[in-house]
Structure formats: C-alpha cells, structure tokens
Amino acid sequence: MDFLDYAFMQRALLAAVLVGITAPAVGIYLVQRRQALMGDGIGHVAMTGVGLGFLLSASPVWMATAVSVLGAILMELIRWYGRTRGDIALAMLFYGGMAGGVMFINLAPTGSNANLTSYLFGSLSTVSEEDVTSICLLAAFVVVVTLGLRRQLFAVSQDEEFARVTGLPVRALNLLTAVTAAVTVTVAMRVVGLLLVSALMVVPVAAAQQLTRSFAATFAVAVAIGVSVTIGGTVTSYYQDVPPGATIVLLTIGAFIVMTALAAPLARRRARALAAAQTAGDPGECTIPATREAGDGVGV
C-alpha cells in the first residue's frame, strides 16, 4: 500500500472514487430512458469548454462544466422541440463541440494538442489540489440530485408521459438530469477522459442489470462496480505504468463479461424456482391423451 504515501496518488484515488460513484449514478437514468450515448455527446461538447479554458487562461474544469451544461440543456431543448431532424441537430452539436475544442486550444498561447490529449483520455497523475476541490463540489451536487430525487427521476425516466399526467415537473426534471450528466462528465474528465467517460456511465449499469431484478439493486451494484474499477484501474496504473483511463474502461468491460457469465446459471435457477412455485398451484405441463380419435373429431 506504499502508493498511499504519495500526495498525487491520494488525490488521484479520491478523484477516481468520486467518479466511480457519480458516473453510474447518473448513467442509470440515461440507460433507463434509452439515451445511453448522451454522456458521449456531452463529452464532445465539453471539449470546447476545455479549449476555451486554455484560450481565456481560465480553469479548464470550470469552463468545461459551463460549456457542457449549456450543451446538455441545448440537447434537451432540441429533444423537446425538434421532432423531425433532432438527430441531425445533435450530430452538429457533437462535432461542432469537438472541432471547437481543437480550434480553441490551438489558438491559445499555452495550449497544444498534448494538453488536449490529457483531457481526452484522462491524466490522473496531474490532478491538482484545485482540481480535487472542484471535483468534490461537483460530485456532491451529483450525489444529492441522483439520490435525493431518485423517485421522481425514476418515474420520469420510466414513462415520461405518465409522469407528466401525475403532475411531476417533467421538463424541469429532464433539464436537471441533463445538467447533472454534464456535471458528471466534467467530474470524470480528469480521470477517464472525455472520450471514455460515457463508458463509465453506461457499462457498470449494463453489467449490474445482468444480475439484478430491481432498480434499487441495479443502482447499488452499478455504483459498487464503478468504485471497484476506478480504484482498481488507478492502482494498476501506478504499478504497471499503463494509462489509467483506458485501464478503468477495460476493467469495466471485464466486469460486464464476468456478470454476464454469472447471469446464465442464475437465470436458470430463478426459472426453476418460478416453475416450482407455479406447479404447486396447477398441473403445469400439458396432458396429452394417450389415444386419439379419428381426425380428433374434426369435420371437413
């Protein structure tokens, strides 16, 4: 456990744990609404924020937060109003965001593509004291929203039309989900990078739901997987000198494969238990008469 002696590793681990909690916590609602790739879109838009941060010599984390929150709100509004060509508008937003990021960072006097790479794929060892403070504040916001409003967010993500008829402020909750997802992207940016952040939002949830039957259990297992892989990936990258972001994402996919392998025998056992419970009430199997009448009595 010698890695805990280094301040940079303490910061890296703290940031990694917070990402492991927040990314699946938001991701589960995106998966539930079948918008699993929204995190990816926000990640692209956030690049413009990073570029602007360098250009204006402001904090790239806060600049990325501001730009990705605006981008997420814009995406939600496009989903709301633009019925027909919404996907085209979203594509322009994604690639415009990416191109803007590359452009701004090259215009900036201190920026280069090397800086951008650390944001695209994560750079845990360069997480500064200042970054950790921002990440803690943003992660606290995400946890408060995703846990405090879990019943409302569940209802809206499960069946939006029904939620509107129960009188829930659906539009506000949708915007809040989008803003929370954007904040999570910037929390995870330093750890796994903007291009890989969506994996941590989606894959732990997909892995968890191989085994779980309830939303609450899926939430808990997804966060547990998220925390395990981010800690595992960070520690591995300390010993093996491999990029932490890629290690974390590959570990997550590994967790998905393990869960899927475990799920098959478990599903068989559940099916047997269910069948046993049902045969207690009725015969279960069809009974075929031993002898059959000519043509089974069917006339022509």
Binding site: V31, Q32, G167, R213, F215
Partner: peptide
Amino acid sequence: VGYVPQRTTAAGGVPATVTEIVTSGRLS
C-alpha cells in the same frame, strides 16, 4: 386523475420491480 397509457410493456431500459413501477404512480 389515474391514467393508463396505451403500452404493451411497463419495462424501461433498467430492470425494475412491480412495486417500484406502481410506487411511481403514488408520487402525485
């Protein structure tokens, strides 16, 4: 007002129990 939309399924993108879904109708 209790509304039953025209749906063939109550399921979403994430597993949910019968109780969890019915509870969302109580939020009003």
